[in-house]
């Protein structure tokens, strides 16, 4: 599984209230997703395309344990997040929901709008211009779960096999 998309660049400490604003917690997740990151980038929900990639600095996903933070990115078509570090609950939630997230020490050096191919198993992110960024790979067993769409679809698949 490789992700080929255009990058949206963000800074450090993109928290769960920016990703999934609490004001929309009671309603349908599709509605909340329309407000994903709007506090710092009002055009993000409209601009993001299927397969796009979010890049960020340190502590991506810091804050709440709400899984909606990862769901909102998925609903906006985001296929992968590269960050210099992740908050641990967000990291687990994202993989559990089928969103590949990779620790990439040079994620902040990738400009917004870059065409990028990410190979989670190999742990590489290759810019269209040729520069290769190394990332912490996602182990194969975990990637099977991610590729299935997360833990629940993976369990369904393995149960029926």
């Amino acid at each position: 599984m490789k992700i080929d998309g255009t990058t949206h660049a963000f800074g450090d400490r993109i928290d769960t209230d920016l990703l999934s604003p609490g004001a929309y917690m009671k309603g349908p997740i599709e509605e909340m997703a329309k407000h994903c990151l709007e506090a710092i980038d009002p055009e993000f929900p409209a601009r993001s395309q299927l397969g796009d990639i979010v890049t960020a600095g340190f502590e991506f996903g810091t804050g709440s344990s709400r899984e909606q933070a990862a769901s909102c990115l998925l609903l906006n078509g985001i296929g992968c997040v590269l960050a210099r570090s992740f908050a641990r609950i967000f990291y687990r939630n994202a993989l559990n929901l089928g969103l590949p997230v990779l620790v990439c020490p040079t994620a902040h050096e990738i400009p917004a709008g870059t065409r990028l191919v990410v190979d989670p198993l190999a742990g590489t992110a290759t810019e269209a211009g040729g520069r290769v960024h190394s990332c912490e790979p996602i182990p194969e067993r975990l990637m099977q779960m991610v590729a299935a769409g997360g833990l629940i679809p993976f369990l369904e698949q393995t149960r029926t096999q």
Partner: peptide
């Protein structure tokens, strides 16, 4: 199922926050 679950550590327990799928 909440990020401030770490509060339980005050009693000398290991208590960690998890999301809903991990909780499942």
């Amino acid at each position: 199922g909440d990020s401030h679950s770490c509060t339980g550590g005050a009693w000398g327990a290991v208590m960690v926050g998890v999301g809903a799928t991990d909780m499942l």
